[in-house]
Design a binder for these strands. Structure first.
Lengths: 115, 115
DNA sequence: ATCGTTCATCGTAAATATACGATAGATAAG
DNA sequence: CTTATCTATCGTATATTTACGATGAACGAT
């Protein structure tokens, strides 16, 4: 089974994992960067800036849209994409929370460095 | 091909994606939390706190070790795991950089909300 | 109405990821 | 040495991910 046993984890844990997974591919991060820098961007422009086929880029856009990090508006035959600042901010805060939990405590290293 | 076309992306982009992917599973995040809270932790304790088989947990631990977020020291027949604070901090900074890049600019929403 | 452009979706192939039982290796205890 | 414990690894099954060509749907322009 490639599917995590998500039913065993909380809704928040699953939400976090979902957002993070969307950020776990270089192409998707680059898409987000492009959209941030260009402020409104046609799908075709993104395809031109990535070493991937149009169908593949479209799939990545769909995934980013699914988790709410971007949105796409139809503009004639083209589609205008942009980031969703609210959700991006929310994801940022969520990640900060996790990392603060993981780094705040003393969190000593192992003493016995045998391996 | 399930493999991203990593050769097309920079080393830093790939490093980031790799770290983030390690964080994209609820079980692995929970493992990190357990290790942070308990400060040194036997593998068996982790298995007890997760709804997963020992073999599966061991696999997740291996992945976290691979990306450098944790380390495991042999202690007799047991293995003592702990987070790697340096790499965790590095990952945190890396994520902050990305998000700062993605959220700093005006990053307007689309105007035409047709879809 | 037809054509060209733009993009999403379908179908498909191959690689990865997730999960678990079974097994093997290492060590402590007896 | 034998046994019990702990953990990694192997083998395997299944689902998901990544990628691309081909096709289809929507729209503007002619």
């Amino acid at each position: 089974m490639a599917k995590p046993k998500i039913e065993e984890f909380s809704a928040n844990e699953i939400y976090f994992a979902d957002i993070v997974k969307a950020l776990s591919h270089p192409a998707r991060v680059r898409i987000l960067k492009i959209l941030t820098e260009m402020n409104l961007c046609m799908c075709g422009e993104i395809v031109n800036q990535l070493p991937l086929a149009q169908a593949t880029v479209s799939q990545h856009l769909k995934e980013l849209k699914r988790v709410g990090l971007i949105q796409g508006d139809i503009d004639g035959p083209k589609v205008c994409y942009c980031v969703n600042p609210d959700n991006l901010f929310k994801a940022k805060k969520e990640l900060e929370n996790i990392f603060n939990q993981l780094t705040k405590k003393g969190a000593l290293s192992c003493k016995t460095k045998k391996k």
